[in-house]
């Protein structure tokens, strides 16, 4: 279990009980809630939020990085997404949905930023090696180059599966696609990458199948 998950789930349980009794915001407004109580509730929320960020920040950042292809923009997108998540934190009801909720917010934030043309589309820096100590650096560079050939939707689906660990149904919900379309994109993405990186092996396997 990722670090911080316990804190997050405890915080969410406490908050959910309060929400069930009187409604979260009603509870905040009720006169019986003294300043101290509200402070404790805020601290509880904050602790739960921090637990969630601890647990998922790295994956969210990497997902944003591969969408934006730029470290600064990725950090900006995740920052905006987490601000949005914090503002809507009280609307979250299921701890199980947290991870996909955060990934969806990052995805939407990226789409918003791209729509506003805030991002100048940058090419991959294919010659630089930024992954965490890859076993074969040259293969990693080739793979980074190969990722450029994927369509935006195929790449997003593949990133969500590999980085986020989501299944096809979850990816479909996050990207607003049908599950079948996600399956097609995932298969095509892997085929395209392997065709590019292992042309001989891939041709042989294609003949076998």
């Amino acid at each position: 279990m990722p670090a911080g998950s316990n804190d997050f789930e405890k915080g969410l349980r406490v908050r959910s009980r309060a929400a069930v009794r009187v409604g979260f915001f009603d509870a905040l407004q009720h006169p019986s809630w003294r300043r101290k109580d509200r402070g404790m509730l805020f601290e509880g929320r904050k602790k739960a939020f921090e637990g969630a960020v601890d647990a998922y920040y790295d994956d969210l950042y990497r997902y944003a990085y591969w969408l934006c292809r730029n470290h600064w923009q990725a950090e900006d997108v995740v920052q905006e997404a987490l601000s949005r998540a914090w503002r809507n934190w009280s609307g979250l009801r299921e701890a199980r949905a947290l991870k996909s909720w955060l990934f969806t917010i990052v995805h939407n934030e990226f789409m918003r930023a791209a729509k506003r043309s805030r991002f100048v589309s940058s090419e991959f820096d294919a010659d630089s090696l930024e992954s965490d100590a890859p076993a074969d650096p040259s293969a990693a560079i080739e793979l980074r180059r190969a990722l450029r050939i994927l369509s935006e939707e195929s790449r997003q689906a593949l990133l969500l599966q590999v980085l986020g660990g989501f299944n096809c149904a979850e990816i479909a919900a996050m990207l607003g696609m049908r599950e079948g379309a996600v399956m097609t994109r995932l298969s095509r993405a892997r085929q395209a990458l392997r065709r590019k990186l292992e042309p001989d092996d891939y041709a042989m396997e294609a003949n076998i199948s």
């Binding site: 960020v53 601890d54 591969w66 995740v78 920052q79 987490l82 914090w86 992954s131 990133l159």
Partner: peptide, 30 residues
Amino acid sequence: FETELAQTLRVPVPDGARGRAVRGAASPTS
């Protein structure tokens, strides 16, 4: 191939980015 792919996608996260994100998002002023 999957191992290489996962390893390539695991780009390093900038130092302090997580802390900055929490401070920026969950300030008391919302």
